[in-house]
Write a protein that binds this DNA or RNA. Structure first.
Length: 159
DNA sequence: GCCAACGTTGGC
DNA sequence: GCCAACGTTGGC
């Protein structure tokens, strides 16, 4: 298992849960629940570790873009919203004894005074391999390379 | 296992 | 609101 810090991008629709909502949450912490895609689930369950860095992305927003940073404070564990029949993300196939869906906990680190819009990201050479920017890509939890992270943080410091 | 139909995502 | 692209479902 790798000890070095890893980086991720989490998408959220601001009308559902924005970075401002995260900042307002108790202790600025939230469960990243409700992910119902197997590829994203695998990252949440197997790969995302305590201390990893998270780019907080607003999708279906005007404009869409990276709006801040968060930190993983709890690695993957079963998403209990799947067990709750009254929850919109309820999944009768997920059993507490054999959970299908997982979540992590994140803590707010920073809300950018100036978000980085999607169209600006597209214009940056070193980011052209980002999963986010691939045609047709819609993975809501995705890995970010150390190089991509560095480029983006440098960009933030210049804004 | 194939694949058509359907539902969802998410930019524009 | 439109629609392209993707993921899932289910009949066969």
């Amino acid at each position: 298992m790798s000890k070095s810090k890893q980086y991720w991008l989490f998408k959220s629709e601001p009308s559902v849960f924005s970075i401002a909502d995260l900042e307002r949450s108790p202790k600025k912490i939230t469960h990243w629940d409700g992910v119902r895609n197997y590829q994203a689930r695998n990252f949440l369950r197997d790969s995302i570790k305590l201390g990893d860095g998270v780019l907080f992305y607003h999708s279906n927003a005007d404009p869409p873009g990276i709006v801040g940073l968060a930190e993983v404070i709890q690695a993957g564990y079963p998403d209990h919203t799947a067990f709750d029949s009254k929850d919109p993300h309820f999944d009768p196939d997920s059993d507490p004894q054999k959970p299908i869906w997982y979540m992590v906990d994140i803590h707010h680190v920073k809300t950018f005074s100036t978000p980085i819009p999607l169209n600006a990201l597209k214009a940056i050479k070193g980011l052209d391999k980002m999963i986010l920017l691939q045609k047709g890509s819609r993975l809501s939890v995705q890995p970010v390379t150390g190089q991509e992270w560095k480029i983006i943080l440098n960009l933030v410091n210049k804004l």
